[in-house]
Design a protein around this nucleic acid. Sequence first.
DNA 1: TCCATCGGAGTGTAAAACAC
DNA 2: TGTTTTACACTCCGATGGAC
Length: 608
Amino acid sequence: MSTDLSISRATDPCDANPPLLPPRVAEPGTSGACLECRQRHLKCDGRRPCKRCVDSESNCVFVPSRRGQRTHTRGCSQSIAAQEAVSSPGIKRTQQDAGFLAGDCRRKSSFRSATSPALGSLVAWSKFAPRPASAGPRQYRLHPAVSFERCIPSYYHHFHPSHPLVLPQQHLLPRVKEEALQPLLAVMHWVGSKYIAPEMDQQPLLDIARLSVDEAQTKRANGFTVQAMTVLLVALDGTGYPQQAVELLARTKQMALWLGMNYSQFITESKTRSGVLDESWRRTWWELYVLDGMFAGAHRATSFSLFDVPTDVGLPCEEDDYETDQIPEPCSLQDLSDRDLSIKRCDFSSFSYRVLSVQNLGKVMQNHEAAEVDATVHAQLEVLLSSWRHNLPASKRDSLRRDGRPDEMMFQAHMLNHTTSILLHQSRAQLDLAPAQAIDACAPPAAASTTPESDECAAAAAAAAAADHPRVSLHARHVATAANEIGKLMTHRTPLTLHTHFFICAVVLASIVQLSAWSGGGGGGGDDDDDAGVREQVRLCIGALRQMSSVWGLATKALGQVRGVAGHVHFVRTQSRQMEQFLVDVTEEDMMSMFAADTLTLADIGTV
DNA sequence: TCCATCGGAGTGTAAAACAC
DNA sequence: TGTTTTACACTCCGATGGAC
């Protein structure tokens, strides 16, 4: 402490040299020892940076002292929430979000303040762990199961293939001590922990990631901050904080545009002299672009605003080329648009087809927003979607690479194409969406029908489909096919948790279509085989959501809703069948006596 | 022998409780 | 309003054990 400085300095071998900076001057409200020294239970000389940190090339970070505070004994939720509110004033929080930020008294054991023994157990901040510039006023005790060394490989194995914007592992690890990378590493740490220890409380890591990103937003606007924000917003959305994710998406887009990441000039001016880092910047822009479209399509709570933003950033390369640092000259978006008409040869990556697929989604959504979509425009949009599928090179027609490994980029591209097809045709297929009104895990429920005469219309739709009304049945077929194709994506022999969490929304959309079909009588005609087929599709969707719920909170919510509706539809269908059987068995005499009994009952009720 | 880890004693501090 | 009590934060000595 500052009071016994003279004694400790005289005996401390660290102070053998005369100090170049003034000896320990504890800033008001700041701890006397840096985090590194506190963690190691060693005497800190209080200089900034301190001698130990200089020698060990560690980040020398001083955080505000909480000495004397009693935040955990009374009104702890409030005080911590208030603290957090100050740390990131730009964020409007929902009640749920406030909960996830504040934690509560019951979680005390998992993030116990760093009283003396605890600091030594801060495994997260070990030698190679990221250290946010302000680790925040709270310290956390982390289980070794979620150590940095385990969580980062987990991130690359589970999450990175779905959103491959950050540097490949072998390029990132040598840079873990760079200040600019700390928020990104903190976010990756949290995301990686979600897969390896889903049963554990990941709140501490999430809090650290949030604090780190919040701070970076105000202090360090750079490409790595955009990457950290992008990864965080995806994971927040999947975890079940959609409002937070949407707000963060808006700020991330703002920062990316402010930095000029939509122009290749951003890369040339970065002067990275690293092909793989240049590629990482290209990917950051296009990932944000794709996510903007996915958010708009999946949640229908945002607009795909990046769709109209001018850009000349080259398209990302194949994943294998990125991993092996063999980055080819990037193809342009114009090349992609002209791909079948131009003489110029360009091998487009799976990521590029994913970009193209999300562009189609953007075009459909643009027209979707118009009150009435002209039939011609509607047909043109369908041509776009079909053309995308038909003109895929043979190697991109399924979601596997040449060597049989899954190609997540093409998986998502197909997923987007089928989802867009449902969005395009759903309203014209005149599905009876009433049974699925309770399913709002991804997006607010669609109107039960497109016209005010909804009930009549739904009934008419079923009748028209049964009579094979040419237009309605065509749209219904498109919707049913797309839902079945999404079903096929679920049957790939790849763990579903390795896919992007947006697949949950595709599964939910397919579930809604299947449930509508089921409640309307299977394939429309009430045939037993059709009925069993649709029922199996619903079961498949439930199974997929169950598997993904082991990681993503969003899937847990969707699972509950889809199962609830499926149970209700099953019940109604069973009752209806029993009634049909009853009507077949009953005689005319039985019927007349029942009517008489009913009339008497009604008369009794009337007199009461 | 060196070095990293960490238990725990000693101390500091601000909130809460209490006295006047 | 001033004083005392209390609970917790914080520092860092020194024991311990693993690596070389």
